[in-house]
């Protein structure tokens, strides 16, 4: 205990040193202990902790993004809460202390904006869907196979963006010119065995071999690597998922939150998103 006290006091002194230089290290979230002078010698205004609520499909990309952001701003700390965008929207509207909400679709961001918990949003990435299959004994080789009798299909819940997009793909493949069959969606949905809470849970169910097929984002399939097989959805039937981000009203650390969003659009942030397979907006 005593030891920790000494350390934190030393850190506070560091902050006081920055003050002495004459630049105010932002009245950030109350945690002055994290305020350290930047490499250039001027105090970085981007300090303190931010809580980022992000869609599950962003898990790997945003973790890397967070690390790069902290590297860029040593006084800042980004923490994450990953879940389905629809769960996050409910949490934000119930007053969760999120600084940022990154949704896998505009619909869930609109839910938050309609409740006046965010005022403006920016599109920042795109994604599309693929069908994943287990590596062993895969019975689904094409999109059409998803509707074969006995196939165990797993989707994300219907309000989870990934689940909504998947149902959209099924509908498009039943109605658009060159459709697989008019009753394709009906037959495919008759194979539905579970509505998972988020897209990563769909991926896991397929990875485990519990399900024969699941609809996930291309980036999720890439994250699973060789642990799943990937079946392409014909471009005409596929949908483009649009990711949007907003600084939320409940947040306490607007400066750092805005810096995080900005960082996402900087070359370094864009490079990280691209390396995880996301398309640029």
């Amino acid at each position: 205990m005593t030891r920790n006290h000494t350390i934190s006091r030393r850190r506070l002194l560091g902050a006081a040193g920055a003050l002495a230089v004459g630049i105010l290290p932002a009245a950030c979230g109350g945690d002055g202990s994290d305020a350290t002078p930047t490499r250039t010698g001027t105090a970085d205004l981007v300090t303190g902790e931010i809580l980022v609520f992000a869609a599950s499909s962003l898990t790997d990309a945003f973790k890397e993004l967070g690390a790069a952001f902290e590297d860029e701003h040593p006084g800042a700390r980004a923490r994450f809460n990953f879940a389905s965008s629809s769960t996050l929207a409910t949490q934000v509207n119930e007053g969760a202390p999120a600084d940022i909400f990154a949704s896998a679709d505009l619909q869930q961001l609109k839910v938050v904006m309609d409740a006046r918990n965010a005022s403006e949003a920016q599109l920042f990435a795109t994604n599309d869907l693929v069908v994943v299959t287990p590596t062993k004994g895969a019975t689904v080789k094409t999109l059409a196979d998803v509707a074969k009798p006995g196939v165990r299909l797993v989707l994300a819940g219907r309000d989870v963006p990934a689940g909504r997009y998947a149902r959209e793909v099924l509908a498009r493949a039943s109605t658009l010119p060159g459709a697989i069959a008019a009753d394709f969606a009906t037959k495919a949905l008759a194979n539905l065995r579970s509505e998972e809470p988020n897209v990563r849970a769909v991926l896991t169910k397929v990875q485990l071999g519990e399900a024969d097929a699941g609809f996930v984002y291309r980036t999720d399939a890439a994250a699973a690597g060789t642990q799943v097989g990937t079946v392409e959805i014909p471009a005409a039937f596929n949908v483009q998922a649009q990711y949007a981000i907003a600084v939320t009203r409940n947040g306490k650390n607007v400066t750092t939150a805005e810096a995080f969003v900005e960082f996402l659009f900087l070359p370094r942030g864009q490079k990280i998103m691209a390396s995880h397979g996301f398309g640029a907006q």
């Binding site: 769960t87 409910t90 119930e94 869930q108 819940g157 219907r158 509505e195 809470p197």
Partner: peptide, 12 residues
């Protein structure tokens, strides 16, 4: 309850 929380037709 979890599904409703996610915003299924039942909602919060």
């Amino acid at each position: 309850v979890i599904s409703a929380f996610e915003g299924s037709s039942l909602g919060l």
